[in-house]
Amino acid sequence: MGENVKLAFIVQKPQYKGETSRLGITHAISYQTVEILLEDGELVTPTLCFVGEGVLGLQKGQKAMDMYGVTSSETHIKNALLVDLDVFICKEDLAKYGIPEDSLPDAEEMGADKKLQIVPYSEIQKAIEESKHVMFF
């Protein structure tokens, strides 16, 4: 049986200010196709976590395609849920920036089983500790 490597993708920069925070999401999503480059039985299991300023720019109702001609971060988050990623949002940081928990999107209409998980930082810390590699975006 091949190794299942757990990875933590930690997004700590706000969406749209730079490219890095978005690349954190898209790199995590790419676990869906990594099997073509791995041996039989090998797996990559990512957890995508948003902390600090990384919780900014995730709300639903984004018009990035209309305004900028680019895919919104909301769409990327929905795609992450659709491919069964575990997505953690830091509860304390949402409160710090006054972002209501019900302003965040889900992908239920797309048929996703997963939902965003708004969790205390201690849960994110646990995911970090359980991961072989941690990558900050």
């Binding site: 990875l7 890095t20 790419s30 676990y31 869906q32 990594v34 480059l37 990559v44 990558m135 900050f136």
Partner: peptide
């Protein structure tokens, strides 16, 4: 991007330079 994840899978150390 899956190229990167595949290499990460087989790595002893990963350095992510943002």
């Amino acid at each position: 991007m899956h190229w990167y994840l595949a290499k990460v899978h087989k790595s002893d150390r990963v350095l992510q330079i943002g």
